[in-house]
């Protein structure tokens, strides 16, 4: 997440001081990515150094107010106009964990998958409830928060679907090796095949 660009974008709205920026950011993103105030001040210092914001001095109540410069506006415009960079490919701890798990002996991959699925489902339940509650009495400021929630819901749903797929692949693999060694019967005649339709590969 680009704190730098987020703060700049908020300053394009109106001049603000550090604490206001933090509150505004968290309010618009439902506190999903908490900012610590130290990060805000460090970022403002750098933005000032780079000529993207200017320090307007105190507001008389001990706050240092910043406003955006023309260079800063251009920077924000560039940020909005550029697709988010995908680190190549994005690091995904879960994918890494499972990739290692399937290649190591003595790791119960099915248990890992199920534990993760239940945890992801819990998160999805919470997001869904939160979305429902927010939508039920929506304020104007909630629009941003609802979008963030939708994004979390899509991501978590995709994660669960991917886990289902991993599990189906595992069943497929186990079945293929079982067929090769002993024509072992799956515990309940149908499950494995229906969960993961046979491919030409494991029919061999």
């Amino acid at each position: 997440m680009s704190i730098r660009h987020s703060l700049l974008a908020l300053l394009q709205d109106q001049p603000r001081y550090g604490y206001q920026l933090r509150v505004e950011f968290e309010d618009r993103t439902g506190s999903t990515w908490p900012l610590n105030i130290g990060q805000v001040y460090t970022t403002l210092d750098r933005l000032e150094r780079d000529g993207l914001v200017s320090n307007d001095g105190g507001d008389g109540e001990g706050h240092v107010v910043y406003s955006i410069t023309d260079a800063g506006r251009a920077e924000v415009q560039g940020w909005f106009a550029t697709p988010v960079e995908r680190s190549n490919p994005p690091r995904n701890e879960l994918a890494i964990k499972l990739a290692l798990a399937v290649t190591l002996p003595g790791v119960d991959v099915a248990a890992i998958i199920q534990a993760q699925r239940a945890a992801s489902m819990r998160a999805l339940q919470d997001y869904t409830k939160s979305r429902r509650d927010t939508a039920a009495n929506q304020r104007a400021a909630d629009t941003a928060w609802l979008l963030v929630l939708d994004s979390l819901i899509f991501q978590t749903e995709a994660e669960i679907r991917w886990l289902d797929l991993c599990e189906a692949r595992m069943v497929q693999l186990a079945q293929a090796s079982g067929t090769r060694s002993q024509a072992r019967k799956p515990s309940n005649g149908v499950t494995a095949e229906e969960a993961a339709p046979r491919t030409a590969e494991n029919r061999r």
């Binding site: 199920q114 998160a123 339940q125 919470d126 997001y127 819901i153």
Partner: peptide, 29 residues
């Protein structure tokens, strides 16, 4: 995810369950 509890079933057995936490620390509106 709309449910209070999600029950996972495999081969005719309930193998796990997920219950919403509604944890305010996780999700702060």
């Amino acid at each position: 995810a709309w449910a209070d509890r999600v029950v996972f079933i495999r081969d005719g057995r309930i193998v796990d369950e997920a219950t919403a936490m509604h944890d305010p620390a996780v999700l702060l509106a």
